[in-house]
Design a protein around this nucleic acid. Structure first.
Lengths: 217, 217
DNA sequence: ACCTGAACACCGTTCAAGT
DNA sequence: ACCTGAACACCGTTCAAGT
């Protein structure tokens, strides 16, 4: 399976001059404006260039292909999340596991729901076509299956710290992403806010060699 | 933000006749062949029709647009996963929480890694452009951040069954998806196999009103 | 040295013409 | 009743011509 292209994401030209920087900013903003106004399906290079007030040729000098335009705004989102999580981690340093779990989830959800309109538009970028219906259905089916299964249940120091951190990243990022993509309703977000800290804490406590594993959040 | 289109995914014509069914099957297989051979970037309607041995006009009779071609193979994957999980749930009915957690994770990972080449190709469908580098980097950064944070930690009956099932679906599906998309290396999959059952069990045990919460998996 | 935009190659989709 | 494929509208990208 081949990736679309080797994908050269560097601009042909670096923004050394103030004029260039302004042009790049205008193109970046035009991209997000067209995205929000017309949707990913109608986002064309011509339209973005027109909105930015430059010729397509000039635009191609700074953004060597359409993907670079989209990558620009996704990158911005990723950077914002990274920055928010960096701050959260600094703030949570030295706190116990319960505080860490609660704090990380709050920070992550805040970052991902800060601008829910933009966020969904950006998720739209990653979807060449609309998978959200199918995914929502799949999630509903699985939720029901697991619900039944659970109903049938009769009762109901880290050894490898790197693996624990990896798993925590995956469960936090993955669960929020999947909900944001499929159906970011207030009901679902409330469930995440309620359950995800518990899940993270329970995992962390169970992996903690020094804890009793019996503490409740 | 507008979705690309109202997206009519029903064929104009139902496959009532054997000939039609064969044509549809040929188109479906041609789609996945072109996808695997040339990648999503070179998958064109002309190419698929040619490979399937039908004219574009005929193809458009059964698949009203390109998205429908791609949706066809994604749907197949989703159905396979659903079927696998249905079987797993039946098999796990009546087992305790530890058995359920272990069994669900095994079944889910097996379903998602059964054909890793196809799976990755299919993830490629959902990515209009290659985000995997950026995501992989973001995951690495976050993993490192959480790793540091964890290093700094000093010590280290269901009330709402529907919410627990929802959370379990999100953490299972989300964490695996994010790993499959970003970097499905054997190292990462091994970590999931090891840690995800623990995480699921710990969450379930902590949410279980009747348990001690102290049992280890 | 930098910008412009007509031109090019290619794609998704349609529909008049065939059988 | 069904299939075909040339034709259409549009898109991403380039590059000769301008300033």
């Amino acid at each position: 399976m081949n990736r679309p292209e080797p994908a050269l994401l560097q601009p042909r030209k670096s923004p050394r001059q103030a004029r260039s920087a302004a042009t790049i900013k205008a193109i970046r903003e035009a991209t997000i404006q067209v995205l929000l106004a017309d949707g990913i399906g109608r986002l064309t290079t011509t339209r973005v260039a027109e909105r930015a007030g430059v010729s397509v040729g000039t635009m191609y000098q700074y953004f060597p292909h359409k993907q670079a335009l989209l990558f620009g705004i996704v990158e911005r989102q990723l950077n914002a999340t990274e920055e928010a999580m960096r701050e959260a981690c600094a703030r949570l340093t030295g706190r116990d596991l319960a505080g860490i779990a609660q704090g990380l989830v709050e920070a992550w959800l805040a970052a991902k729901t800060a601008d829910i309109v933009s966020s969904r538009a950006i998720y739209g970028i990653a979807a060449e076509f609309d998978l959200s219906d199918a995914m929502e259905r799949a999630i509903r089916v699985m939720t029901a299956l697991f619900d039944d299964l659970l109903a049938s249940a009769p009762g109901a120091r880290f050894a490898d710290r790197a693996s624990v951190a990896f798993m925590l990243t995956a469960m936090l990022g993955g669960s929020v992403r999947i909900v944001m993509e499929a159906d970011p309703s207030e009901e679902n977000l409330a469930r995440l806010r309620e359950e995800l800290p518990r899940a993270c804490y329970a995992y962390l406590a169970s992996a903690n060699l020094d804890g009793s594993g019996a503490a409740q959040v």
